[in-house]
Nucleic acid binder design. Structure first.
Lengths: 159, 159
DNA sequence: TTGACATCGTTCATGATGTGAACTATATTA
DNA sequence: TAATATAGTTCACATCATGAACGATGTCAA
């Protein structure tokens, strides 16, 4: 009986691991698609869009900060910023305290764009919520939190 | 009192939508990172790795099938396949029934690689499961299923 | 104070990921 | 058999990203 239960447990674990893999993969794909659609809709490449969204709660960001927040090389940040400047969405200015650093900030046009995108994203996630039974909502959110911390543990373990 | 409750409800909805956005974003980033690590570990670019994994349960795939499954243009599939052929992981052969189509299949080396990757991914997701309290596991999985179907509904609604 | 070292941003070479149009060679079908 | 559709390739182009080298500053210790 104990043996049977153990075999059963292993099977369940296997099933759950595979299910997890499948579900996470699908969620990831869904997001990828969503980001691509979003970028197209707002006529800004994904990397530039991500950069714009960093200015929520920041008036100025430096190149290094942007490359850190976007998790890309600073050479990449330079290019992204350059493209946003060309589009008139952000502007560069000198840091009065340090001649090496350039302060990047949103132009009025950039601010408007950020607000539009924020609104779009918020609406989208509200719609997502709308499609979830109200009773399940907190459960889904706490499950995601559980999953997140579990993913972080695994990541920390690997590193 | 009713007014107070309604305001409260709106606040909760807002909070939940933002939380959902944050959590989904983090999960997505985590996956992105994981795929990148995986590709580096197995010394195969991500796109090629994804292509290899398509052969689970398929002896042969055509270029069109691959481009469909990977959700990329067929020109992209051609290049991915070409690179995998160069690396000796897959091989091309003629379809005896249709001279236009080429049947792609794993070489023995490719099969070994796929098994290795499968094993790695399975282990990873088991570790993920290990970090989740057994009592919560089914809850997390069903929450992900709920989320997935909700995402699909939203996607369908937009299109 | 000055010399060694660190930091910020830029440029460049390189590679991965991906699309769409044009093209060749085969099917299919009216 | 002529028009049309399909499979795969090639090419031009765009996006995303890294790492090395470099110039201009800033910092700090001898």
């Amino acid at each position: 009986m104990n043996d049977v239960n153990q075999t059963n447990d292993v099977r369940i674990l296997e099933y759950q691991a595979n299910k997890l893999q499948e579900l996470i993969g699908e969620l990831h794909n869904c997001c990828k698609e969503r980001y691509a659609t979003e970028a197209k809709a707002f006529k800004v490449p994904q990397a530039e869009l991500r950069c714009l969204m960093l200015f929520e709660g920041h008036k100025y960001l430096t190149g290094i900060q942007i490359s850190g927040l976007l998790d890309v090389a600073k050479s990449r940040a330079t290019v992204i910023i350059e493209n946003l400047v060309k589009k008139g969405l952000v502007q560069r200015s000198q840091d009065p305290n340090d001649a090496r650093v350039k302060l990047i900030s949103l132009t009025p046009v950039g601010q408007r764009k950020v607000r539009e995108i924020e609104e779009f994203m918020f609406t989208l996630h509200q719609q997502l919520l709308d499609h979830i039974d109200p009773i399940q909502r907190t459960g889904v959110i706490s499950a995601l939190e559980t999953l997140r911390s579990s993913m972080e543990s695994v990541k920390a373990q690997l590193a």
